[in-house]
């Protein structure tokens, strides 16, 4: 397959970026998208040029490190799929593919397609946990969790922290990311106890970090590699309102 690429190249946060054109002539359709980029980087290196910097690690869709805008869509054309799980069979011979980094204020570009998503870590640090020290735990079966509770908590807990929800949101909101964590714990008896404090603190941190506000366009769930439900956002608001009323 012949593939034309238009890739965002940017030296660092403080310089301007621009699109550059490349062409690959021997792309195999069984290749993953990132292997196609590997191929490009090999060609660039051989010519003595600097390869395109992009984030990736596990390449099996679970670590959440990869993530770029492909033809203007977070993680590319397949719904609920990470960039690394996208294969070139989703494209046709002769296609032009635009590749850009997630362009969100709270994710500054480090280089080319690499962005800094540490804001998401900060939100977790604000309260995304059950405050239990190592060695404090009671016997596991002393806390009963119904099958439904466990399954629905898992649905929310499956988030891989890739940031596609923020990138695809017209408001650049991190509500799905934050809501998923709050919902996970709100659905489990272990997490209920400190739900109020957790929710207030995480939501306020999200605001401080200048993520946008959710307006329920529901785009995030469509691009979320784990298909996390937008209802977790409503659940976050419910927990937030409940916490505010209690105060």
């Amino acid at each position: 397959m012949k593939i034309h690429l238009k890739i965002w190249r940017q030296k660092n946060q403080h310089t301007k970026g621009e699109m550059q054109d490349y062409t690959l002539t021997e792309v195999d359709e069984e290749m993953s998208f990132l292997e196609m980029l590997d191929m490009l980087n090999l060609e660039l290196a051989k010519k003595g040029e600097c390869p395109v910097e992009f984030d990736h690690d596990c390449r099996e869709g679970i670590c959440g490190q990869c993530g770029v805008m492909i033809n203007g869509i977070a993680h590319g054309p397949l719904k609920n799929t990470t960039t690394c799980q996208l294969h070139m069979r989703s494209f046709k011979d002769g296609d032009t593919i635009y590749i850009e980094p997630f362009k969100v204020k709270s994710f500054p570009v480090i280089r080319d397609l690499k962005v800094d998503r540490s804001g998401l870590d900060e939100i977790i640090a604000a309260g995304g946990y059950v405050s239990v020290n190592t060695g404090q735990a009671p016997e596991a079966n002393s806390i009963l969790v119904s099958h439904e509770e466990a399954e629905s908590a898992f649905d929310a807990a499956a988030c891989i922290g890739c940031g596609a929800c923020v990138a695809t949101c017209k408001n650049a909101s991190a509500a799905l990311f934050t809501g998923a964590k709050i919902a996970q714990f709100a659905r489990l008896p272990q997490g209920k106890k400190e739900s109020a404090e957790r929710t207030l603190s995480m939501v306020e941190r999200m605001e401080e970090l200048s993520f946008g506000h959710c307006t329920n366009t529901e785009a995030c769930q469509v691009e979320c590699p784990q298909d996390i439900s937008v209802l977790t956002i409503a659940e976050m608001i419910y927990e937030y309102n409940k916490a505010k009323l209690k105060k």
């Binding site: 946990y129 059950v130 239990v132 190592t134 060695g135 404090q136 735990a137 009671p138 016997e139 596991a140 079966n141 806390i143 009963l144 969790v145 119904s146 099958h147 509770e149 466990a150 399954e151 908590a153 898992f154 807990a157 996970q184 714990f185 489990l188 272990q190 997490g191």
Partner: peptide
């Protein structure tokens, strides 16, 4: 054994029976 206790306390959503047991 204590690891499972710890993980459950942390909110790790392990698979459950309908009765609520692990």
């Amino acid at each position: 054994a204590s690891l499972i206790d710890q993980a459950v306390a942390q909110g790790v959503p392990f698979g459950r029976e309908y009765s609520g047991y692990l």
